[in-house]
């Protein structure tokens, strides 16, 4: 295999991952680099001098960090005080507002070889483990129509958790259909139904 093919990560095409690694972090330059001015639109000079603070997407900061040219502040939600909150009770935290790709960005940070990387990785696993129980509870006991409580609960989930919730709900729905022998009836395809609903809504608006 070509060695360059190995550097392409498994989430290369994943949209949530791309959005997650584009999160801005406050980056502090540790040495002066000539002609690098173009990475900061607010900067007029051609060179970026030492100790300049920049708001850069984290994937770009990584390039500078790996060469020892810059350091950066951990994004909110990954620093030590927040990790303690998550450890105490992860269920009260609104990961959607923090993320909404909290786990994706966390994985990226954990792979960076920061001094905190191990702590972040442990925190991610622990957070997920704490929250999983409630996700399964809500998804397997929810009625078919979404109640406000469930809507509120789902609103605080990370994108990854929402996917898990939806899958689990669908599986439960299928199980109930099998129990009621509803399975014998053929239904129209999901998207066909959605399109018809949309058309109807558009007609009512006219």
């Amino acid at each position: 295999m070509d060695s360059s093919a190995l550097t392409i990560s498994h989430d290369y095409l994943d949209i949530d991952s791309i959005i997650a690694v584009n999160t801005k972090v406050t980056t502090k330059m540790e040495s002066t680099v000539c002609k690098l001015g173009f990475i900061d639109p607010a900067c007029d000079s051609e060179n970026i001098v030492k100790n300049t603070k920049l708001e850069l997407p984290i994937w770009l900061t990584r390039e500078l960090y790996n060469d020892g040219l810059a350091t950066f502040e951990l994004p909110k939600g990954y620093n030590e005080s927040f990790r303690q909150v998550l450890e105490a009770d992860a269920n009260v935290v609104d990961l959607h507002r923090l993320g909404p790709n909290y786990y994706r960005l966390g994985q990226f940070l954990a792979a960076l070889n920061l001094p905190e990387s191990t702590a972040i990785a442990n925190c991610l696993v622990d957070t997920f483990y704490q929250r999983l129980r409630r996700i399964m509870d809500f998804s397997s006991n929810s009625p078919t129509s979404l109640t406000p409580e469930i809507g509120q609960f789902v609103g605080k989930l990370d994108n990854e958790e929402v996917k898990l919730f939806e899958e689990s709900r669908k599986a439960m729905e299928k199980f109930k259909a099998w129990e009621d022998r509803r399975i014998e009836k053929i239904l129209s395809n999901e998207l066909v139904t959605k399109l018809r609903k949309r058309k109807r809504a558009a007609m009512e608006l006219d």
Binding site: D14, V33, I39, L60, E63
Partner: peptide, 28 residues
């Protein structure tokens, strides 16, 4: 300055690769 030049080229190239990744992901 050629040392810095090397860094600049590298950074620019990584931006280019990131845009490429976005475009591929979009079409995919």
């Amino acid at each position: 300055s050629s040392q810095d030049g090397f860094i600049v080229v590298k950074i620019r190239h990584s931006i280019l690769l990131f845009i490429k990744r976005c475009l591929i992901a979009y079409h995919h």
